Computed example of a mutant assay.
Amino acid sequence: MKKIMNEQLIYEILSVVEEIPKGKVATYGQIASLIGRDKNARLVGKVLSQAEFYGRYPCHRVVNHAGRLAPGWQEQRFLLLEEGVSFKDENHVDMKENQWDC
């Protein structure tokens, strides 16, 4: 089986994440689509969970398709609120108002 994750793929994903503007969010699927891997949203999540090993990236701006925050990452909500992102409830970003239109 061919290795799916390599350094080039990791940096492709992280370079897209770096482009998400302050006050906006993108979805894992949206990022996967932008790098030409429509069906690899989970792979994007895996890369982002290890992003700290590659530098500083605004991974807090990535949520699931429904706007749900990453489970267990309490700081994500605080970081998004600081940037002016609005929420539907405690754990869901208002995607209509805040999704990155790339």
Score class of each variant (00 low, 15 high):
Ile20Phe: 06
Gln8Asp: 15
Glu12Val: 04
Asn98Phe: 01
Asn98Ser: 01
Glu82Met: 05
His65Lys: 10
His60Leu: 00
Cys59Asn: 06
Asp94Arg: 06
Leu48Arg: 05
Val63Lys: 00
Gly45Cys: 06
Arg37His: 14
Leu9His: 07
Phe53Trp: 10
Ala41Tyr: 15
Tyr28Met: 01
Ala66Pro: 07
Leu80Asp: 08
Gln30His: 09
Arg56Thr: 14
Phe78His: 13
Leu34Thr: 10
Arg61Val: 00
Val62Thr: 03
Val63Cys: 01
Glu12Asp: 15
Gly45Met: 07
Lys39Tyr: 13
His92Met: 05
Val63Glu: 00
Leu80Gln: 08
Phe87Val: 09
Trp73Cys: 02
Gly45Ile: 13
Glu82Ala: 05
Cys102His: 15
Ala70Lys: 13
Lys3Glu: 12
Lys46Glu: 14
Glu52Ala: 12
Asn64Glu: 07
Glu83Ala: 06
Glu82Tyr: 08
Asp89Ile: 14
Arg42Met: 11
Lys88Phe: 15
Leu80Tyr: 07
Ala66Ile: 13
Ala26Ser: 06
Lys46His: 11
Gly84Met: 13
Leu43Gly: 02
Val44Met: 04
Thr27Pro: 01
Glu18Val: 07
Glu7Arg: 13
Leu69Trp: 05
Ser15Thr: 15
Glu18Pro: 04
Ala70Leu: 10
Gly45Ala: 09
Asn64Ser: 04
Val47Met: 02
Tyr11Phe: 12
Ala70Trp: 11
Arg42Cys: 02
Glu82Cys: 03
Ala26Gly: 06
Asn91Ile: 15
Val17Phe: 01
Arg42Ala: 09
Gly29Glu: 09
Arg77Ser: 10
Gln30Trp: 07
Leu80Asn: 03
Asp101Gly: 07
Gly45Arg: 10
Arg37Ala: 09
Ala70Ser: 12
Leu34Asn: 09
Gly29Ile: 07
Lys88Pro: 14
Ser15Trp: 15
Val63Asn: 00
Gln99Met: 03
Val44Cys: 02
Arg77Glu: 13
Asp89Met: 10
Phe53Met: 04
Tyr11Glu: 04
Met95Phe: 07
Lys39Phe: 12
Leu81Glu: 15
Arg42Tyr: 13
Met5Ala: 10
Asn6Ile: 10
Asp38Ala: 11
Glu19Met: 14
Tyr28Thr: 09
Glu12Lys: 15
Gly36Asn: 08
His65Gln: 09
Tyr57Val: 04
Arg56Val: 11
Gln99Cys: 00
Leu9Cys: 03
Leu43Cys: 05
Ser86Gly: 08
Asn64Met: 04
Val93Phe: 05
Asn40Ile: 01
Arg61Pro: 00
Gln8Pro: 11
Lys2Cys: 06
Tyr28Pro: 03
Val25Lys: 00
Gln99Lys: 09
His92Ile: 10
Pro71Gly: 02
Gly72Phe: 07
Leu9Ala: 03
Ile31Cys: 01
Val44Asp: 02
Leu43Met: 14
Asn40His: 11
Glu83Trp: 11
Ser33Lys: 10
Ile31Ser: 03
Lys22Pro: 13
Gly67Tyr: 04
Val93His: 02
Val47Thr: 12
Val25Trp: 00
Asn40Thr: 12
Leu48Cys: 05
Ile35Pro: 06
Pro71Asn: 03
Trp100Ile: 03
Leu80Met: 02
Ser33Trp: 11
Lys22Asp: 12
Leu69Asn: 02
Val85Lys: 07
Ser33Gln: 09
Val44Ser: 00
Ala41Pro: 15
Val17Asp: 07
Asn6Leu: 05
Ala70Pro: 07
Leu81Arg: 10
Met1Pro: 13
